[in-house]
Simulated scan of single mutants.
Amino acid sequence: MKVVFIGDIVGNLGRDTVKRLLPWLREKYQPHIIIANGENAAGGRGINAAITRELFEWGVHGITMGNHTWDNREIFEFIDDEQRMIRPANLAPGTPGRGSMIVKANGKELGVVNLIGRTFLPPSECPFLAAEELVTELRRKTKCVLVDFHAEATSEKIAMGWHLDGIASLVVGTHTHVQTNDDRILPEGTAYVTDAGMTGPRDGVLGMDKDTVVRKFMNGLPARFTVAEGKWVLSGVFVDIDETTGKAKQVRLIRVDEDSWIAT
């Protein structure tokens, strides 16, 4: 099974980039299933129903979220009913939505788990215990399982990779918006990347207007961040999974920007 994971989509430019490049991604990687992190898709904070529908219409098969899940309150109106979207599983019991799903497309089935880290982020339940429980549960239905670990600390994400080695097919980090150059297959067959990177404005600061962010660092005063404009970048991960074992056969980074992209 071939899977493409698209790193955090940020704002209008991020969505436009996904729409523009999805045909190219399908042609180049021939993915059976495409998953995207959408927690920054609406103005850089949260997601709404219209954007969710757009992403599915364009060809995304499943959406994961993160610490900005609830920033757009409209999500409370549809997250319980949307079977193709998940939020971090290790939130408090009774939180709307779900933390895992099975995505079906092109005759394939992929289990997907969304988790959030506890280091430098608001309190949550243990992601390691939740990961082991949910991945094991999904593997009863499909050997192929992707885990989106939305976390700040690289050490926490690396630890999760080792924790799930041989159980998950791919453990991919999100949240920091900076793609890491450490794609590898761990000894027991789990593909791992500390952070998939982001999809959106290339020349901002994590997708936000750079001048506003620089001023805040210099004067420490409150500032309203807005999504940057300018040239785009798309970042993500490609993984090829052995469907009989759930182990990764190949993993590689995807990163293309406005200056390097050549349409095929």
Rank of each mutant, 00 (worst) to 15 (best):
P23V: 02
E27I: 00
L186P: 15
I86K: 01
W232V: 05
R15P: 13
K216Q: 14
R118E: 01
E77A: 12
E137Y: 13
I102W: 00
F78W: 02
E57T: 12
K157L: 08
P31R: 07
A49F: 12
G44W: 03
V4M: 09
I35K: 07
A105I: 04
R53P: 00
V227S: 13
A105R: 12
T176L: 12
E132T: 14
I63Q: 03
G117H: 10
D148S: 08
A228Y: 05
G173V: 11
V237P: 11
G161V: 05
N12G: 13
A130L: 01
A248Q: 06
E39K: 00
K216N: 15
F128C: 03
I102Y: 00
V193K: 09
I51D: 02
E39F: 03
T180C: 09
K249S: 08
V103E: 02
N67P: 09
L25M: 06
V237R: 05
K157S: 06
D80H: 01
D81F: 12
G107F: 02
Q30T: 09
D183A: 15
H32N: 15
R202S: 10
I47D: 07
L146Q: 04
A36D: 11
L110W: 06
R87A: 05
D148P: 11
V113Q: 02
F238E: 02
C144A: 15
A196Q: 06
Q179C: 09
K28M: 05
G66T: 15
A50Q: 13
A263C: 08
L138P: 01
T176N: 13
T199F: 07
G44E: 01
A49P: 00
A50K: 14
A131L: 03
I185L: 02
F76D: 12
W70I: 01
N37Q: 13
K210V: 12
K108S: 04
N40G: 09
I86D: 14
D211R: 06
A89H: 12
